[in-house]
Write a protein that binds this DNA or RNA. Sequence first.
DNA 1: TGCCGTATCGGGAATAATTATCAATAAAAT
DNA 2: ATTTTATTGATAATTATTCCCGATACGGCA
Lengths: 156, 156
Amino acid sequence: MNKTVQREAILSELRKMNTHPTADELYAVLRPKVPQISLGTIYRNLEDMANRGVIRKLELTGRQKRFDGDASPHYHARCRECDRIFNLAAPRLDEVDKLLASLMPELGCSGVYLEWSGLCPACREKEQQLQNQKAKEVEQDEKREVVSLSAVRTGR
Amino acid sequence: MNKTVQREAILSELRKMNTHPTADELYAVLRPKVPQISLGTIYRNLEDMANRGVIRKLELTGRQKRFDGDASPHYHARCRECDRIFNLAAPRLDEVDKLLASLMPELGCSGVYLEWSGLCPACREKEQQLQNQKAKEVEQDEKREVVSLSAVRTGR
DNA sequence: TGCCGTATCGGGAATAATTATCAATAAAAT
DNA sequence: ATTTTATTGATAATTATTCCCGATACGGCA
């Protein structure tokens, strides 16, 4: 495998991103840096590197394939709010494979493709802030309620 | 939702098949029976029925989407030999969802897309027959070995 | 039963994502 | 330095799916 400007740019850019980009997202990022790189070159190199285990090709739900510069074993989730893909790096996740394989011994399980659905850290943050705000409003309402009740009582 | 010849043919054919066909596989099967049905009609109806929960759309690895006439909750596996999709109907599988969700409480997990990889019943059968045959051949070889050894001993 | 408004159809064009082709160029080997 | 081979960019082709639209079928109602 020869070393080329294009291939090295693709790999280093992919490794900088934590967004699991599609081929055309990478293209958009790379074009200013490697002027006349072509989309075909990006597809070709991503495919090659995935086949050699340098990177990972993610075949997930949705129509476009995504790529991950981190080839080490880990799982992914898709955020149900913003639709972004993010890594799951929980200590017990390496047990999941074994557990799932053991559930069906007769299958001779040789792995699972698994995509979780949940909230990414950012959207989780947002949701919590929203809940805090609501809680405050309720508190305010309750205070106002007390005031107006006392107004009734005192006739003011 | 009106009832039409095409929609009923699509649904009944899909329910007869246990192969989780793609839209064009269904098209091939339906064309002789519903002469000038169009591929667009098949896509449109599969999409509609999946949205209404009558059938299931499987967004798995591989580029084409597949459809399942059985909308009840169950998991799927892809055979690593013949690449076919088949159902997994194990009693403990209904616990898998809960288990996976409970592994990452902070994710707020709302489901997982899961595709197993293993051997389908047919390929499993084949593999076992192959192994039995090999075992027999080894047995034969051992017999021959014994014969030739005794030949050496007796000088014949 | 016939009429009408709406849902659905067929067929073809359009789109999206990816893969293939190939002459030109760059990298490695000699 | 020259030859060989791998890789590139540009474009065409392919694959899977969706969209469009005039024609047709369906279901409700007189």
